[in-house]
Simulated scan of single mutants.
Amino acid sequence: MRWTVGQTRTLYQDRWVHLQTADVEAPGGHHFDHRMIRSANGAYALIVVDGHVLLLWRHRFIPDTWGWEVPGGRIEPGEQPDFAAAREATEETGWRPAGALEPLAEFFPMAGLVSAHHHVFLGFGAVRVGPPADEFESDRIVWVPLDDIRGLITAGEVSDGTTLLALLALLDRLR
């Protein structure tokens, strides 16, 4: 059953987010006003070297949490997702993926509200290119042993949805 979207109206818009309201008709004819958040698509790089994965320890002020995250971020207009993932990893960590990144997962993190489409890539090997360009991105940059990942998830140290999905997909792939 497909919903029908009628007229939309902008409530707020800046470089990062476009908040809209839409007249929506659900199957059965019920009409209601629905909010939509349009935002850029994201690209993320899981980089694995010698049984370790590169992660960021960072604070997220909105939920006021600390946790491990995969490097990644916004895909710029005209940029390919794999290139964006490599660029973001390099900017955030100072490590550039060595070689091509391969697709690991794609998903819409909040399909009922947000348009963002996330692309997760996997790479084996990395080259240190210097300090992170975006030092404000994290408190620590760590090569975490793959054997520790399940424990970090169980302990609640991975709460970011994109990172959780990426790490679980990686563990499934490597088993």
Rank of each mutant, 00 (worst) to 15 (best):
Q20S: 07
Q20V: 11
V17Y: 02
D23E: 04
H31A: 07
D23V: 08
L19G: 06
Y12N: 12
V48H: 07
G29F: 07
R35F: 08
L46R: 01
W57H: 12
A26S: 07
D14L: 04
A43V: 01
W16R: 04
I62S: 03
V17I: 06
V24L: 11
V24P: 08
V24I: 11
L46P: 01
R35A: 11
F32N: 13
E25C: 14
H30L: 14
L56R: 13
S39R: 12
H18T: 06
Y12A: 15
H18D: 11
R38G: 09
V17R: 02
P63K: 09
F32C: 14
G28S: 07
S39V: 06
V49Q: 14
D64R: 02
R58Y: 07
A40I: 00
G29P: 15
P27Y: 11
Y44F: 14
P63Y: 02
H31I: 08
L55Y: 08
A43H: 01
L56D: 03
H34M: 12
V53R: 02
T21P: 02
R35Q: 10
G51F: 05
H59M: 02
Y12I: 10
G28E: 08
H52N: 15
L54T: 06
A40S: 13
A43K: 00
D50I: 05
L54P: 00
H31K: 15
V49R: 15
R38Q: 12
N41H: 08
S39E: 14
A22P: 01
P63N: 04
I37M: 13
Y44S: 03
A26M: 04
G29M: 14
R15P: 00
L55Q: 05
H18N: 09
H59L: 10
A22M: 06
R35P: 14
W57I: 02
Q13P: 07
F32I: 04
A22Y: 03
A45G: 00
G51W: 05
G42Y: 00
A43N: 00
W16G: 05
P63C: 09
E25G: 08
H31E: 14
F32R: 15
H34P: 10
V48A: 10
G42N: 02
D64T: 00
Y12E: 09
Q20H: 09
A26K: 05
V53N: 11
E25A: 12
I47N: 00
V53A: 14
G42L: 03
V48R: 07
I62Q: 02
A43Y: 00
D33V: 15
A45T: 01
R60I: 05
Y12W: 13
L11F: 10
T10W: 08
R35S: 10
T10R: 13
L46V: 15
L56G: 00
G42H: 03
